[in-house]
Simulated assay, not measured.
Amino acid sequence: MIRHVVLFRWRAGFDPGDWLERVRALPERIPQLRSLDAGPDVLGADRSWDAAVVADFDRLDDVAAYTDHPAHRPLIAISGAGAEQIASVDFEIPDHPEDQP
């Protein structure tokens, strides 16, 4: 399984409400998504980012299909316009706990 994590720091004045609603609707529109969670930071610590998206996929090819999907592309544009910073990481998670070192 591939876990895709994206962190956002929003520009002052950006309201991510519509963006978040649309992100949370992606699993209904993109079949390659195994799961998706998204939300604003609730801690507000100095090192906190404003929001995160965590999505799981079966394969790397599924991440590529998600990235280029017509339902996802407009959200990339909104994120880019509203974000001061965006960070992401994609990493592999073994499907079975016994496969972990």
Rank of each mutant, 00 (worst) to 15 (best):
I2V: 06
V6C: 00
V6W: 00
L7M: 13
F8S: 00
R9Q: 14
W10T: 07
R11E: 12
R11I: 02
A12C: 06
A12D: 15
G13C: 10
G13A: 10
D15P: 08
D15F: 02
P16H: 08
D18S: 14
D18Y: 01
W19E: 11
L20Q: 09
L20D: 04
E21Q: 13
E21Y: 05
R22K: 12
V23H: 01
V23Y: 02
R24I: 04
A25L: 10
L26C: 12
P27S: 08
P27R: 03
Q32K: 05
Q32S: 15
Q32E: 15
S35Q: 04
L36A: 10
D37K: 01
D37Y: 01
G39M: 06
G39D: 08
P40I: 09
G44C: 09
R47Q: 14
S48A: 09
S48C: 08
D50M: 06
A51S: 13
A51M: 07
A51L: 05
V53T: 06
V53Y: 00
D56S: 08
D58A: 14
R59G: 09
D62Q: 04
A64Y: 05
A65D: 05
Y66G: 03
T67I: 08
T67C: 07
P70A: 07
A71S: 14
A71K: 08
R73C: 07
P74T: 04
P74N: 08
A77V: 12
A77L: 14
I78L: 11
I78Y: 04
S79K: 03
G80R: 12
G80A: 10
G80K: 10
A81H: 13
G82Q: 05
A83H: 02
Q85E: 15
Q85A: 15
Q85D: 15
A87T: 07
S88I: 02
V89F: 03
F91T: 13
E92Y: 07
P94Q: 07
P94I: 02
P94T: 02
D95K: 08
D95W: 04
H96A: 12
P97V: 06
E98S: 15
E98P: 02
D99F: 02
Q100P: 01
Q100G: 11
P101N: 01
